[in-house]
Design a binder for these strands. Structure first.
Lengths: 243, 243
DNA sequence: GATCATTGGATCCTATAGGAAAGTTCGTAT
DNA sequence: ATACGAACTTTCCTATAGGATCCAATGATC
């Protein structure tokens, strides 16, 4: 609607100085896309719930058209399923078999990526990796970090290792699994141990010291521990929402 | 045109007797999606060309809304790119580096999948695999098979091996790369050798005889040969745009 | 003659309206 | 009381209109 205040009408060449803030003219369908994704993660839309185009448009205060576009993309990402004349529904939670399959896939590509990242690590890459760790590592004494924050870090960390491996296809494949979103939906209300950060730290150091086999092994250990010790028990424990 | 002109409107559910077998109300957006994908593969939309929403709607005789939805999905699949206020463009061809990256990724997951398929092969699985081979293998003397047909077989064959591996994630990852579509766009006007079918046959026999290491090796050989001997030379040969 | 401002065209983006189909509910007959 | 049928409601699906923006062409000015 309104352009952000005065002076930026010209998107980039406002004053001739290439500030290039690029006011993200991108938008409305993308914002709707992110909004719905956030609703799915927060369980404000439970798995299996209907996602009405009109209802979502009313709730977000936009017309149905961008909602339709956003849902089409979410369907392509398998986060919602579309029944031809019955509307969209939120995708169900992963079954235990699907989760196992997902981690088998991650075990196939991520240790490999960690090894390649270690082989080709640069000074700048090591800095980026350590910065990511520090962003979530530092003040762990005062207050607990929210699970949402830790998940965001986890997402960035794993995608960063894939990026450092130099394989865009691996990074894309990992991103397209939306594994972090699925995991988040699985135990979005549980506290996460500090084990994750410890394991991330081990991976970081292995990569930063260019030790390929150590990086591969650390990543493998991390994924196996996450699956066997943290995720899989959720299916056999009582479905508690305790903290 | 108005809403549903009288002639073409009522599809077939004229009377209350819904004898019509599944009126296939499925999709208009889906059909548009497939139509545009076909246009991309046939180079009727060249890489880099603009894909106007209104223009495509006029050409296909539908309203812009389903076109918009189809393009949103194609963008999610990275077959078109969207410039915020400048419309969609067909994605450019893969660079040599991107092709190499793609095959590195396939070498990571597909030999693994072939080995798992061999380990868990069933009688039914072997039959399906051989049927796929026979469908394209048989009458190779009378007429040449079109490249389009062979590509379709290649797509089905590789997805089938991934499916037989029992990993939905691997199958999805392979599908999401759209590698066959990219390859097709690379040399859509060339004849393909019979080498591909020979290599497929070797993979099929290795899987059907439950020889995991042979299957893995055959798949690896197939991918390396395809990249090194068939695809990569395209970048160094004289340009192929003239016909 | 070259550069910049202005105007025009095309396109995208959002919003709204109307028709069609499916699910649901209520009423009636057995 | 139960089953069947009809009407209703909700929702999706398509089409069209209007506002905003970007690219291109033209004319004016230095």
């Amino acid at each position: 609607m309104n352009q952000q205040g005065p002076g930026d009408a010209g998107p980039q060449s406002a004053d001739g100085f290439g500030i290039e803030v690029l006011p993200r003219r991108q938008a409305l369908a993308d914002e709707v896309h992110e909004a719905i994704k956030a609703l799915l993660m927060d369980h404000r839309i439970a798995p299996g719930d209907r996602v009405s185009i009109d209802g979502m448009a009313r709730e977000l205060g936009v017309s149905p058209t961008p909602v339709r576009e956003a849902l089409a993309r979410l369907e392509s990402a398998e986060l919602v399923v579309k029944a031809p004349l019955r509307g969209y529904r939120a995708a169900p939670l992963l079954t235990e078999q699907q989760l196992e399959d997902l981690y088998r896939f991650r075990l196939l590509i991520e240790p490999w990526a960690a090894a390649r990242a270690a082989e080709g690590i640069s000074a700048a890459g090591a800095i980026r990796l350590r910065a990511e760790m520090d962003s979530c590592d530092a003040p762990t004494e005062s207050g607990y970090r929210s699970y949402k924050e830790l998940t965001a870090h986890d997402t960035r960390f794993h995608l960063l290792t894939a990026e450092l491996a130099g394989s865009e296809q691996v990074r894309l494949a990992l991103e397209r699994t939306h594994c972090h979103l699925h995991i988040f939906r699985l135990y979005f209300d549980r506290a996460v141990g500090s084990k994750t950060l410890e394991e991330h730290r081990a991976i970081t150091e292995a990569i930063a010291s260019a030790d390929a086999s150590a990086a591969e092994q650390a990543m493998r250990h991390h994924l196996e521990a996450a699956f066997q010790q943290r995720l899989r028990p959720l299916y056999h424990a009582p479905s508690s929402t305790e903290r």
